[in-house]
Nucleic acid binder design. Structure first.
Length: 431
RNA sequence: GGAGGGGUUCCCGAGUGGCCAAAGGGAUCAGACUGUAAAUCUGACGCGAAAGCUUCGGUGGUUCGAAUCCACCCCCCUCCA
């Protein structure tokens, strides 16, 4: 069963490195095992960068193992230096504490906390770190670490070598804290496997060593590849920034659109990374797309699957409703109720009264949040990229927003669907 | 504590008295081409509709004029103690 799991993970390209490679398959096959992955509170929500490990926990759980999701109330106070170019800004304890609560809720949606012996648990390393005093820590834990070995770790090398940056003792100690987590989870839960992104390799092997030294147990580690894009740009960013898992920070619609925009060069790999679709099914999709003309089906499947995983069926339907209405359908065919629904579904929208209209279209669209600056609107107007209910505006229209949003042009007397470029759409509800 | 190096617009990185809202690259946005893809080409890229306004770690100063010079301060890096 678990041999099969590993085989599947390999087929998906989800295995980057394994510590204890020879023994791990048999260890997993023998019985239901406990594994963990940590998530540090660096914001009030996780983003899609954490999706691969989150889903990985679930993959193991589906294969009959027990996942522990660790929310790093302690490690989050320190800051992981792994492959970071710069020292991080520390947040205050109460801020971090608030984030821990948010992440707990978020993380628990990805694993089954009610699955009998395999029930997932959410743990917080602050629970066993808070009471630790410095002397005990230095004597009992620190003594097992060789600074000589620590500075050899690739993850901190650039901070040690690089001109113009450095590393504080605080961040340097991060590895020890995380290692201690593994040892502690091994002691408390019999946890024997830690998974994480490939940037966590140094921290994971540190934990493996410490667990052997402190508990005399053999434990394992597995890392997943960093998600990259074929064009070399950073994965997980859009114009408006990070793609968050929290629906309040990134709407299901925006989330869905993000995945829909995946390039052909990445989409099949992402299907393997981010969905539970069988690898054979994905191969079949790829084959069909290659054989067919025009637009591939893969992006749509990816968007649908991932949005459902993160936002559930309701979130997915909302996202699909908006997408269909705006990109596949005819705006004029939408009823007033449809348009109101789009607002509820999370289509960016604003309600304002005719009297509140600003002096220029650039102001109107900028204030609505469609772009960062009026310059971009100007640029778009000049190239005919702005439209109101399907009718293009020009630069000459800039001075007369009221005329652009004239009642005669409204849908159902009050709605204006304004597009800027191909992808940015905003609904104005004018009363 | 001492010596040296450094802090420039989202990032990297030029600029060392006017020609600087500040080279170049990246990222980003828009257009063309397409498939809400990629690549490519074009344009934008501090704010502002415009007039104009505000930037080059901070505060003062020199000067007709400063990112550039001076003073003090803050932060980072390297080496020494």
């Amino acid at each position: 069963m678990s041999t099969e799991l590993l085989k599947d993970l390999r087929a998906r390209g989800l295995v980057f490195q394994i510590a204890g490679e020879e023994a791990l398959p048999a260890w997993l096959d023998a019985e239901s095992r406990t594994l963990y992955c940590g998530f540090d509170p660096t914001a009030d929500s996780l983003h899609i960068g954490s999706l691969v490990p989150l889903l990985m926990l679930r993959r193991f759980q589906l294969a009959g193992h027990r996942p522990l999701a660790l929310v790093g109330g302690a490690t989050g106070m320190i800051g992981d230096p792994s492959f970071k170019a710069q020292e991080r800004q520390l947040n205050t304890p109460d801020v971090i504490d608030g984030w821990v609560g948010r992440l707990r809720d978020q993380v628990s949606r990805f694993v089954d906390v009610d699955a009998g012996a395999c029930s997932a648990e959410i743990v917080n390393n602050l629970d066993w770190t808070r009471g630790l005093d410095v002397l005990t820590f230095l004597r009992d834990v620190g003594k097992h670490f060789s600074v000589n070995a620590m500075i050899q770790k690739e993850s901190v090398k650039q901070r040690l070598d690089r001109e113009g940056s450095g590393i504080s003792y605080t961040e340097f100690s991060y590895m020890i804290l995380q290692s201690y987590d593994f040892a502690e989870l091994n002691r408390r839960y019999g946890c024997g496997l830690q998974i994480g992104g490939s940037d966590q390799w140094g921290n994971i092997t540190g934990g493996i060593d410490l667990t052997r030294r402190m508990n005399g147990s053999t434990v394992y580690g597995l890392t997943m590849p960093l998600v990259t894009k074929a064009d070399g740009t950073k994965f997980g960013k859009t114009e408006s920034g990070t793609v968050w898992l929290d629906a309040a920070k990134t709407s299901p619609y925006a989330f869905y659109q993000f995945w829909l925009g995946t390039s052909d060069a990445d989409v099949y790999r992402f299907l393997r990374y981010f969905t539970f679709l069988d690898v054979d099914v994905i191969a079949q999709i790829e084959k069909e797309d290659a054989a067919g003309q025009g637009r591939p089906q893969a992006q749509g499947i990816l968007a649908r699957e991932v949005t459902r995983l993160v936002h559930g069926n309701d979130g997915l339907y909302a996202a699909e409703r908006i997408t269909r209405s705006l990109f596949d359908g005819d705006l004029k065919a939408l009823s007033a109720a449809d348009l109101s629904q789009l607002k509820l579904d999370g289509l960016p929208s604003s309600s304002l009264s005719r009297a509140d209209l600003p002096e220029t279209v650039t102001q109107l669209l900028t204030e609505a949040g469609m772009t960062r600056s009026g310059k971009q609107v100007k640029d778009a107007l000049l190239s005919g990229a702005v439209s109101v209910n399907g009718e293009a505006l020009g630069w000459a229209d800039n001075g007369s927003p009221a005329a652009c949003l004239a009642s005669e042009r409204a849908l159902h007397g009050r709605f204006f669907v304004v597009r800027l470029g191909k992808k940015k759409v905003h609904l104005f509800d004018l009363t």
